[in-house]
């Protein structure tokens, strides 16, 4: 499938400068991590690779990633002040350069989040023009672009879970455009990534959340 899907993947985003891949894309990656984590993190450890590692200060990549983790959109005028805002919220962020990896896209970041007992990790890259791809979450290989509504559902590997989730989407007349299912091993941790044409409403998410085998439901809004 094409990574860039329509006009506004090319014309847009409307954004605070100076770089679509290093600022807007970074903000989107941060915001996707925040959405997937589901709450304001208290600690973030961010590893930067390639061009991200070399030029992050000049491009405001650090500022933008933190802005995304604060749930700011790409055009939020508070982006330039995000580091100060994070500090005022007792949100601690550290950046470090990662070891060069020729398999990674030149603009790649690994974002580790913690809040209380909860922890989350994401690997993603900013592929140009503000578009991003999440490549790894919970140790699962995925491909999430965030350019259409997406549900990310970690769950237990049991019979009937996939059917129960899709039945709920069907009952809400939501069309599934893409779907990935993966598991660590038989009866172990599993992950569903479901793309839909329309954003699933709160009651659909609550119904999925209430399923026994489902651990969490994260919704990613197209931005």
């Amino acid at each position: 499938m094409s990574s860039f899907r329509h006009s506004f993947d090319i014309i847009g985003p409307v954004m605070i400068g100076p770089s679509s891949s290093h600022t807007a894309g970074a903000a989107r990656l941060g915001r996707m991590a925040r959405s997937l984590f589901g709450r304001q993190p208290e600690v973030a450890e961010i590893t930067l690779y390639g061009s991200f590692a070399k030029t992050y200060k000049g491009h405001g990549t650090d500022v933008a990633l933190v802005a995304g983790l604060l749930d700011f959109e790409t055009h939020d005028p508070r982006i330039p002040d995000s580091l100060k805002i994070a500090e005022s919220l007792d949100f601690h962020v550290t950046f470090r350069p990662g070891r060069p990896n020729p398999d990674f896209h030149p603009n790649t970041a690994r974002i580790s989040l913690k809040a209380g007992e909860d922890a989350f990790e994401l690997l993603g890259c900013s592929i140009g023009g503000g578009a991003v791809e999440v490549l790894e979450i919970y140790g699962f290989q995925v491909k999430i672009t965030g350019s259409y509504p997406t549900l990310v559902i970690p769950h237990a590997d049991r019979y009937g879970v996939v059917a129960a989730v899709t039945a709920i989407l069907s009952a809400h007349q939501l069309n599934i455009s893409t779907m990935e299912v993966a598991r660590r091993g038989r009866g172990s941790d599993a992950l569903m990534v479901i793309g839909t044409d329309e954003m699933p409403p709160d009651d659909a998410v609550a119904a999925i959340q209430s399923l026994d085998a489902v651990r969490q439901v994260a919704r990613i809004n197209p931005s």
Binding site: I11, G12, P13, M15, I16, T23, P80, G130
Partner: peptide, 21 residues
Amino acid sequence: EVNAAMGLVVATPTAGSCGIL
């Protein structure tokens, strides 16, 4: 120049090239 000043622009297709269109 507005982009470099962290101003509001539209990426067309990128922020680095947002002036041409």
